[in-house]
Nucleic acid binder design. Structure first.
Lengths: 248, 248
DNA sequence: CGGGATGTTGAGGCAAGTCAATCTAAGTGG
DNA sequence: CCACTTAGATTGACTTGCCTCAACATCCCG
């Protein structure tokens, strides 16, 4: 794996994701032991963290930046199963077998790496953390259910509306206006996530602009001008809640 | 909940799903304690086990029959997130909040019911079971990834081929030919699972018959006549493995 | 043996895909 | 600093797979 490994020792106590990640379930007394297992890494924008069917040796906890998870089919089609940000967990604890997805950094990425075996062993001896991870995994299942509904039943405007609302809620920076969405991924990535083509994403964006639903200063930041209408389009009764995600 | 509760005491040691369910991770010494928590129930074909947004008080382990899990949207669209059979777990351990999906019996259904709180407590005190359930949850996430790929990128013949192969592998009865699939659900259910209409399912079935891919004695049982071609259509490099599923 | 539910087949329409031509933005090197 | 390159985004014209609506067939169960 070609990534920078930082020389600075990690300090879990003052970690930026201490309270928004799985680590919030590790109490102070056990934090020291947990910390000794971790190594900081960095990946550059575009770098592959691990490839589908690769054997997973390390699980990563993202502290900064964003990654995409995808699987390519034999015919060259790509489905992006999700995007992961700060506080999210990358890599399957369970399997010594191959990774299900490829993980790639879409921005520069800071992560905390744990040897999979050690992490797994830590889980087996710390029931509360294991239970917490189980809860995260179940949230992930529900999130995937949501995505199945989106892919199975919604048309493209509904899909993009749902995606924009989700973006604006997850990963919003402290104190920032809730109706601003930073689009860190390309149009093609959005398309591969929402099960449409990038052309359709483009057309839907302009359609939203023409109808005053959104406003765009540049291609990477969208202001949601009419949240209720977007929510109605998306079929959301309320705003999606922030959650910890996991990517396998 | 309107369901029959059996008078016969359950005997976990000789349970039909003892070795193909989560219970296989409970060793004999702890089985007695586990057994005292369980109550057998039966649901009739068509009965609702729990409704979406219902508070979950009981988790069920299916011992016989099949259930479907779905969520209805405000506009009356339905997405079936999965089908569950013997050995599969029904109901979220984690949440005291509402169920994500509605669960309905599509055949007569025998289940083992556990009080959610008790089950959750048992997990917190039995790390190996908790870890085993975590592994099941991660398998479920991967299965949902697969389904996202199906819904996001595949056309209807590919979808149906994948579904038939999955059906023939999961829930196959002992010693039965692997290329026979029992279709316990309706065409509409298949459609709502695969993100198409029931008409499209019908048309694709006849298309498969005309091309010698399958043969049907009646509407409920399909013989896979050309598994390699179906696999190629589905984009499967190998047959899907049996797994324990979980439905929330 | 009827009647309601479920499944099949046909005809026509439309949302989104495909292909292709621009437009834009971000580098890169002279 | 500007010309050149390249990747990504947008827009348009055409095509298509699936949906919709509707008619008909079949199954199941009292």
């Amino acid at each position: 794996m070609f990534c920078k490994t930082s020389k600075t020792k990690p300090d879990c106590r003052h970690c930026i994701v201490r309270h928004i990640s799985l680590c919030s379930h590790i109490d102070s007394s056990e934090l020291a032991e947990f910390q000794t297992m971790s190594k900081r890494h960095q990946f550059e924008r575009g770098q592959i963290v691990f490839e589908q069917d690769d054997r997973i040796e390390t699980v990563f906890l993202i502290t900064r930046g964003m990654a995409k998870l995808y699987r390519d089919s034999a015919e060259g089609k790509r489905q992006i199963t999700g995007f992961l940000g700060p506080g999210d967990l990358l890599g399957s604890v369970k399997r010594s077998a191959g990774a299900y997805c490829t993980a790639a950094a879409i921005t520069n990425l800071d992560v905390c790496g744990f040897d999979r075996e050690l992490f797994s062993e830590f889980l087996r001896t710390h029931t509360s953390l294991c239970f917490a991870l189980l809860a995260v995994a179940m949230d992930e299942i529900e999130a995937q259910y949501d995505h199945s509904i989106l892919l199975g039943k919604k048309q493209s405007p509904e899909r993009l509306a749902a995606f924009l609302l989700l973006l604006s809620q997850r990963w919003k920076t402290e104190g920032e206006d809730t109706n601003l969405a930073h689009i860190l991924m390309s149009r093609g990535d959005i398309a591969d996530h929402l099960g449409v083509t990038s052309e359709t994403i483009s057309r839907t964006f302009t359609h939203f602009k023409e109808n005053g639903l959104i406003q765009m200063f540049d291609k990477k930041s969208v202001v949601l001008k009419n949240v209720p209408k977007l929510q109605h389009l998306a079929g959301f009764e309320e705003m999606p809640a922030h959650r910890m995600a996991i990517g396998l």
